[in-house]
Design a protein around this nucleic acid. Structure first.
Lengths: 160, 160, 160, 160
DNA sequence: TTTT
DNA sequence: TTTT
């Protein structure tokens, strides 16, 4: 056992596809998607330019953050993600053990913020039916859209 | 109003003095202390060595983290602190406005972890009476001490 | 002196004004600006909504990051900033000591990334003469603009 | 290609074994080791206690940080690690593709700090012959030990 | 005011 | 002083 440890990942990147929403065995919704980060540099000696894209698997168990993802995150959305590293063991079709490392966001000490100046809904063709309804309600209530996104983030604890 | 913003501070440093515990107007306890971080470097040209210590004011409103501070953080303790920057305005004795910047830890998205291999109680003469009792109980339950410190951190919401 | 300490600030926010560029006594350029972060929440009991904006003073000494700020950061730009806390002592007009806390970005372990999907030049009336020329060149070379911004960030060491 | 992205991992944990030092094809030394982080919590409903340890693969290419690892990091050392996520593709003995995710520390925007109050040499039986010599030199120069560790961290790349 |  |  270890004491006094920290396991934190901070990413800013763009969703490669629309997020997937699934329901866990205990009836709670979870969201997952991949985001890309990339770096480019010029080799000191050869002067040649290189660019490398890294893909990160994000898995969200926080009820409040799942809601934000469902409502606003789409393919192409730029997001700030703060979570923890988790390496998961699974068995492939040949019966051999495999490991996959993901960035997981639980209720505690996690965050997800949309960084697109405009919300990212227009980035995807997929718009769930309840979506526009939702949008209308929120504009009715506060005359502001991203504001409510932010609210849901801050009010993380309740009701989840 | 702003959308999609992040305000995060991560510090690892040592307490300069025992923490101060106060009760706010709404009857909740808060903790405050200063921690030091320092950097040393050698000047590129002169080759002279320099060292600079920075002091950070930490203010804790999270009930759970206040409990950890009360029970375990003492002068000299090394801590990991994660919070937000807040600049507070106040009026000095001459009636002129002053500003003080602090690192605040609320319930949401904050963390405090003790990094001393042994807990830091021996670093201070101050040992509240309920303290030893607490220590005994915890050892009884789990045969481990740092473990319980960690527990209290992770189980942030409950019971604190 | 302290060992094993960390002093890190991570902010995502918007510039309140165009950045200021100055030359230090040793002939190097530095940049400074303020960025806003804000949080909004609904009070658990009263249900009233609150919103608080925090302003952060950013001071940049890294030659490479100063160049990015000069070329691309303007009033309204959204930026990711990673630096260190520094509290500076100064004397006001009445001869009394004052303290100001800033987020400083030196060459080491600092970062500044523009998060606007489009570069933020259109956010300001100020456009240095060499600017458009620059833009043309870069589009010629890579057919992409943000890419070069990123390049300059990654290639931090040289020539800045 | 992506612009304005961030890929950052911050870990505090303990080395599971002594680090491995290897030489890359271009003749530079690299270091690798695993560190453990762990979380424990009590289930809200059942009240049962759980504890989970996560292992992270760390790979260091920064010359300055490799030196610190060689000289001071040992099995059991508690370290602060700041790097980037990288998923590496390889082929197993059956010819099937596998992926491994690691935390890599290059020169740029990486950090490694030893958090043990005392340096961690006594944590391992392994003490390379040049080690004690090194220790003597450093004490001769500055009368301080951890100080030099910190120097090397700050003066990462050298010559700065 | 800490720490090495 | 920003942003939505």
């Amino acid at each position: 056992m270890s004491s006094g440890t920290i396991n934190k990942v901070i990413l800013v990147g763009n969703l490669g596809k629309d997020p997937e929403i699934r329901t866990t065995q205990n009836g709670k919704e979870m969201a997952s998607f991949s985001i890309a980060t990339s770096e480019s540099w010029t080799d000191k000696f050869s002067g040649t330019r290189s660019e490398k894209t890294e893909w990160h698997n994000i898995v969200i168990f926080s009820e409040g953050l799942v809601k934000i993802v469902k409502d606003f995150a789409r393919k192409g959305s730029k997001v700030y993600v703060e979570g923890s590293l988790r390496t998961r063991k699974w068995t492939d079709q040949n019966g051999s053990e495999r490991y996959t490392t993901e960035v997981v966001l639980y209720n505690f000490n996690s965050a997800l913020t949309l960084l697109d100046s405009r919300n990212s809904m227009s980035n995807s063709d997929y718009k769930p039916s309840e979506y526009k309804q939702n949008e209308t309600e929120q504009k009715d209530k506060h005359g502001s859209f991203d504001n409510d996104i932010k609210d849901e983030l801050i009010d993380d604890e309740i009701p989840f």
